[in-house]
Simulated assay, not measured.
Amino acid sequence: MTLRTLLLASAASACALPALADVNVYTTRQPELIQPVVDAFTAKTGIQVNLAFIEEGIVERLVAEGARSPADLVMTVDIGNLEQIVDAGVIQPVDSEVLKAAIPENLRDPENLWFALTERARIVYASKDRVAPGEVTTYEDLADPKWQGRICTRPGTHNYNLALLSAVIAHHGEDSARQWAEGLRANLARKPQGNDTAQVRAIWAGECDISLGNTYYMGQMLEDPEQAEWANSVRIEFPKFEDGGTHINVSGIAMTKAAPDREEALQLMEFLVSPEAQTVYAEENHEYPVLPGAEIPELVASWGTLDADTLPLDEIAEHRADALRIMEEVNFDG
Rank of each mutant, 00 (worst) to 15 (best):
L3T: 04
R4Y: 03
L6S: 03
A9T: 03
S10R: 07
P18L: 15
A19D: 09
D22P: 08
V23L: 09
Y26L: 15
L33Y: 10
I34T: 15
V38Y: 11
A40C: 07
A43K: 13
K44M: 14
V49R: 07
L51I: 12
G57D: 05
E60N: 03
L62W: 12
A64F: 09
A64E: 11
E65G: 12
E65Q: 15
A67Q: 13
R68E: 12
R68M: 13
S69N: 14
P70W: 11
M75I: 15
T76G: 13
V86P: 10
D87R: 12
D87C: 05
D87P: 04
G89S: 09
G89V: 07
S96R: 09
S96D: 02
R108S: 06
D109T: 05
E111C: 04
A116N: 08
R122S: 01
V131W: 10
T138R: 12
T138W: 15
Y139V: 11
A143S: 14
A143I: 14
K146Y: 11
W147I: 01
Q148N: 07
T157D: 00
Y160H: 07
N161M: 01
A167W: 02
I169C: 04
S176M: 11
R178T: 00
R178M: 00
R178S: 00
Q179I: 02
G183Y: 11
L184C: 01
G194K: 01
T197Q: 06
A198W: 11
W204V: 02
G206W: 12
E207A: 07
D209G: 02
G213W: 04
N214T: 11
Y216C: 01
Q220F: 03
E223Y: 04
A228D: 06
A228T: 07
T246R: 01
G252W: 03
I253P: 13
T256F: 01
R262N: 14
E263M: 15
F271Q: 08
V273K: 14
E276F: 06
A277K: 10
T279Y: 04
E283G: 05
E284W: 11
N285V: 10
L291M: 12
V300S: 05
W303Q: 08
D307I: 11
L311M: 15
I316R: 14
E318S: 15
H319V: 00
